[in-house]
Design a protein around this nucleic acid. Structure first.
Lengths: 223, 223
DNA sequence: ACCCTGACTGAACACGTGTTTAGCATTGAA
DNA sequence: TTCAATGCTAAACACGTGTTCAGTCAGGGT
């Protein structure tokens, strides 16, 4: 009975409903609402997952797995430059997944953290590729730059998302597009020409700080 | 009795406790915990403010007023360049205020929105000043750039804040400093020299989009 | 046939929430 | 003094939450 595939349908239906609810309303979404979406009693949710937290954890795992899957599918879609955000814009099919990630980002959950870490890793690869192709300038600290680029882009996006109250959170692709409509020009303008006319601030900082770290000492305390 | 100044003490103590709690734990903080902090019964909180939402609203007003006050106090502190974040770094006295703002930012509250709007306004002024002084390059859309710079900086900060679980949220100044320790170099590096070696992406976009808006059409639908 | 196991439910429980109510204490005005 | 009003509290209420419990139903193994 355990190994029969039909049994997993209900469990999976609950899981999917939970991911959707969590993505739309955040992790405060009630077990009852999830059960309602799955057409099931609240007790069954607990019966299958034991606890709301365990359900949450399993949703995290599922989303992470899905991310890993779609990542390798779209990795050769880009490989050019900084089109990180554009991948999101016309990705309405991934909308609930992205919503889940942003929720996890806001609440400091493990999915958000893993997602950020992975995007940084990707960005390091992209920039390295771009440098070799002569399209991107090398940085004094590649990892720190990749991290900053990811944090600023994703951070601006989350802010845009939570600041626009009119748009309902379901339509994340729309928010991304709306953000790009206003933010893409200044972004690539900044990326191609910067904002400062002089190197003074940069040189001052480089003088002030003795050692530009060489890829390892970038983060003071992590893995 | 209404006009007596001594009466406002307790009310104000509750308000201060609420701002602190909201800043630390978000707006889900319970009325009971706030009352406890103020050394007061939960019923009194409701007696003075009518409703938790009204208390929330009054906290918003107080923080906004405080921001407006400290703004005019520190406006001549900067006036140089992009040291927006540095103002936060050594501002431990404003820490609860900043925490409150970040919470409001995450929840899409009016304080966060007003704060962003004001920072954009400030950034427009700063960049204009910097352009006249020859320190900052002009942009094709000053307002959009100011908005992007503010959103990316503040967004990266909020992400950093919610992603670092070890650090307790009380110590916001520490998080800001930790963020600057890793993020300042790539930020000013980006600001002084960009990341792209060619103008291709920018020119492509400028060709693709017919009209660069002239300061008014930047935001599609707002006040 | 039996029965046991697991999916599944309705009802309840325990708890935390915001809020209300009744009443006490103090204080200034009459 | 007497009255009214306000600051303030303890207790309770109504409600939503996650979770538990007792029990029903179906299905496959013996």
């Amino acid at each position: 009975m355990r190994s029969a595939p039909a049994d997993e349908t209900t469990r999976d239906r609950i899981l999917s409903a939970a991911v959707l609810r969590f993505a739309r309303e955040g992790f405060g979404a009630s077990v009852r609402s999830i059960a309602g979406d799955a057409g099931v009693s609240p007790a069954l949710v607990i019966h299958h997952f034991g606890t709301k937290d365990e359900l949450h954890a399993e949703c995290d795992e599922r989303v992470l797995a899905e991310i890993r899957a779609t990542k390798s599918a779209t990795i050769d879609e880009i490989t050019s430059g900084q089109g990180i955000l554009h991948r999101f814009a016309n990705a309405d099919e991934y909308a609930p997944m992205l919503g889940y990630v942003l929720r996890s980002l806001q609440s400091g959950g493990p999915v958000g953290r893993a997602f950020i870490e992975q995007m940084i890793e990707d960005a390091v690869g992209y920039t390295k590729h771009g440098i070799e192709a002569g399209l991107i300038k090398p940085s004094r600290d590649e990892r720190a730059r990749a991290r900053y680029l990811v944090l600023s882009a994703l951070g601006a996006l989350t802010l845009e998302l939570s600041l626009d109250p009119s748009r309902d959170p379901r339509d994340i692709g729309g928010t991304v597009r709306s953000f790009l409509a206003t933010g893409y020009l200044p972004m690539i303008e900044l990326y191609t020409q910067g904002v400062f006319t002089t190197r003074r601030m940069l040189d001052d900082y480089l003088l002030y700080v003795p050692d530009p770290p060489d890829d390892a000492a970038a983060e003071p305390a992590s893995d």
